[in-house]
């Protein structure tokens, strides 16, 4: 079938627009990469950075020689890894009993969980609870208050309901109790859905700024987002980045930013389709 001319014009225009949009999306990142690889003098001059000017790794060398970036990296990795594992564990251990239609008071538990999706105590009451539990100034404050979301529980419940009953029943016959079944059968079978959720949770924890801002007030506990914020805000700039005289702060900020998103940049192209799958999982329910 031959396409009408108007249709071809539209295709061309659409293609050009989408390419332009991609350019706008990528340029800020490219600018930041170029800036981080530019010399102090060039970075200070400003202007467009289509390519690094006065190419040097000096900014990276300076950032990596500061202790804080390593502390921040360590803390962020701890929070991301422990937080993700714990979250998956509690999410799935709630979802399994709730997937049983015979569970007493099932609707009560579900209502209590779903209600948290539309109403919350708010910033200050949650802060006071975290304080009351002596979690202020611990990395647990970044993990526990948002450990599990009602949304994720519902996704896992739906997944577990799709598992054939016979698999569980035959294990029951062999005398396994539900806790053993959960660990030896349910978790392994839920791997696909848990892996998808893990990506989401991990990115959220890696990027988590708000909790770090309000709950942490100790240099040894800084995380990457907090460190970047502090460097940008120029607080204690001299102190934290005292050895940075050789490169401008512009390129140092750029280098810090890139160092903190390298893990995301590295995995994104391979994992993109799984992230997309995650959205689909959610949209089926909502």
């Amino acid at each position: 079938m031959k396409k009408p001319i108007a249709s071809k014009i539209f295709d061309a225009g659409n293609g050009i627009f989408l390419i332009f949009l991609s350019f706008i999306t990528l340029y800020p990142l490219w600018h930041e990469i170029s800036l981080s690889l530019s010399s102090k003098a060039e970075a200070l001059q400003g202007g467009f950075f289509f390519f690094p000017r006065g190419f040097t790794f000096q900014a990276y060398a300076n950032v990596l020689s500061s202790d804080y970036i390593w502390v921040a990296y360590g803390n962020t990795i701890f929070v991301t890894v422990v937080g993700t594992l714990l979250s998956l564990l509690v999410t799935s251990s709630m979802a399994y009993p709730l997937a049983k239609r015979t569970l007493p008071w099932k609707n009560v538990w579900m209502t209590l969980i779903v209600f948290t999706m539309i109403f919350s105590g708010g910033m200050i009451p949650v802060y006071l609870v975290v304080k009351e539990l002596s979690l202020l100034n611990t990395l647990w404050a970044l993990i526990l208050p948002n450990l599990v979301s009602a949304f994720n529980i519902i996704i896992v419940i739906n997944f577990i309901r799709g598992i054939p009953e016979e698999i569980e029943e035959s294990a029951m016959m062999d005398g396994a109790n539900p806790i053993r079944i959960y660990f030896s059968i349910i978790i392994p079978l839920c791997k696909p859905v848990l892996a998808t959720l893990a990506l989401w949770i991990a990115v959220g924890l890696w990027n988590n700024f708000f909790a770090a801002l309000i709950y942490l007030n100790d240099k040894a506990l800084t995380t990457l987002p907090l460190l970047i914020r502090q460097i940008i805000a120029g607080q204690q700039l001299a102190e934290e980045t005292g050895q940075l005289a050789d490169s401008s702060t512009e390129s140092v900020i750029a280098a810090t930013i890139l160092l903190s998103i390298i893990p995301i940049l590295a995995v994104y192209p391979y994992l993109q389709k799984y992230f997309v799958k995650g959205v689909m999982l959610g949209s089926v329910k909502s």
Binding site: V90, S93, M94, W109, G121, I124, P125, P178
Partner: peptide, 20 residues
């Protein structure tokens, strides 16, 4: 199995609601 999760919701969602 359900208990740890219920404790979580009680501590970090319903206690703050009482805190309102």
């Amino acid at each position: 199995l359900l208990l740890p999760g219920l404790v979580y919701f009680a501590l970090f969602h319903y206690w703050p609601m009482a805190g309102i």
